[in-house]
Amino acid sequence: MPDLLNLITDIEGVSVGHATDLALGSGVTVIVFDEPAVASGTVLGGAPGGRDTSLLDPSMTVNAVDAFVLSGGSAFGLDAAGGVQAGLRERGRGFAVGPVRIPIVPQAILMDLLNGGNKDWGLHAPYRDMGYQALKAAAKGAFALGTTGAGTGATTATFKGGIGSASAVSSAGHRVAAIVAVNALGSATIGEGPHFWAAPFEQDGEFGGLGMPGVVDHRMRLKGMNTPATTIGAVVTDAQLTKVEAHRLSLAGHDGFARALLPAHLPLDGDTVFAASTAKHARDDMASLMELCHLATIIMARAIARGVYAATALPVEGAQKAWRDRYPNAD
């Protein structure tokens, strides 16, 4: 993929923006579509938080979205979608209801309230403003990974989490890409070492090129038995999909969680994957859909590893160490 950045912005018509507050230890990431995109999604974690996720069910009326929002802040972070809606409304975007337009902005949140950042924000949480800032910052092309946007305060059982992304091209020439904020209750790495569970899927040393260890430690590692977590992300393709097919693509994204995190989809995870189609390229056969689902699994696994690999520790006392802190010379 010589012309690709290995990011979700490899999909034509997709922009990404971050709002990051290192002192707060939290942030917001927005994925914006130039035109409404056919979308769906699935929640497989036992402790989710989201906004307008029900409308993504294939049986619901609204077929397309203007943007997705990923945010820290737990339930307080749900204000971020309001800021994104405000910015999209300024642009005249949204689902038409008579003379009114309502921007459709599904959101998922992660729990980052216990990471050492300053959460004493007063009466109103800052996430509405951060959502607006993230939308204003949204652009095509390269964007930061690791401790930024919704990944700012993300953690895992073993290392600092963060924003990751990856892309691929199908045999039919369709592009598919993932973005994820890795805030898992479990671990993206194997045992106490530097190796990633996603190692079999790695491309071009994108997260260190270490491969698998000689001995695989399967013992469960959790960042807490009573601490909610959540890994949240999206898969987007330029292939034409129906809403039902987008729903299937989101499930394949969850398969990537299962290949890159151990364990995943726990009772205190809120694991959520959105999926969307920009419909830039026609397709109507089952074989191409199955390949897109296969690739969605792989790119989500790769994106998760990249999010942890790129992360840096928060500049606050007691912050969780990043992979790069423990293994600065491993790659």
Rank of each mutant, 00 (worst) to 15 (best):
P103D: 07
G307R: 03
I31P: 03
L289C: 05
F274D: 08
H18N: 08
E12H: 10
A303P: 03
L266V: 10
H124K: 12
G87W: 02
A282G: 01
D217P: 04
I304C: 02
A229H: 12
I163T: 14
G41Q: 09
A86M: 05
P2A: 14
V244E: 14
G83N: 05
A39D: 01
G49D: 10
S165A: 13
T155K: 01
A125H: 11
L261W: 02
F68K: 04
S277K: 02
A64Y: 02
F201R: 05
H254T: 14
R283C: 11
L113G: 05
L55Y: 04
I102A: 11
L251E: 08
E245W: 07
A275L: 08
S54R: 11
Y327L: 01
L145F: 08
V216P: 00
V105T: 11
G146H: 09
A181C: 14
D238G: 06
G253V: 04
G83C: 08
W121T: 07
S15R: 15
G72V: 06
A75M: 09
G92W: 08
G13E: 06
G205I: 00
V62Y: 00
G233Q: 02
A80R: 01
K140L: 01
M300L: 12
D21H: 07
L261D: 01
Q203A: 09
C293S: 07
V169K: 14
L5C: 06
M286F: 07
M1F: 09
T20S: 14
D129R: 14
P48F: 09
E245Q: 15
L70I: 10
Q240H: 13
A139E: 10
G83A: 12
S54L: 11
V169T: 15
H124V: 15
G17E: 03
N6S: 13
A178N: 03
L145D: 02
S187V: 04
S40C: 11
F68A: 07
N63W: 00
W197S: 07
T20W: 08
L113I: 14
P103R: 03
V69T: 14
D3A: 14
L185W: 03
H218Q: 09
Y132D: 11
L5M: 15
G164N: 10
T155G: 00
N226W: 06
T242F: 07
T29M: 14
V308L: 10
I190S: 08
A276D: 01
S71T: 15
D284Q: 08
G146L: 08
A150P: 01
E317C: 00
I299E: 01
F201L: 13
R283W: 03
G307F: 11
G49F: 07
P328I: 13
V215C: 05
F257Y: 15
Q133G: 04
V169L: 13
T230Q: 03
L123P: 05
G13R: 02
E90T: 13
P36W: 06
A301D: 04
A108F: 05
G253T: 06
R175I: 03
L123N: 04
D66R: 04
H218Y: 14
T42E: 11
H294C: 05
A287V: 14
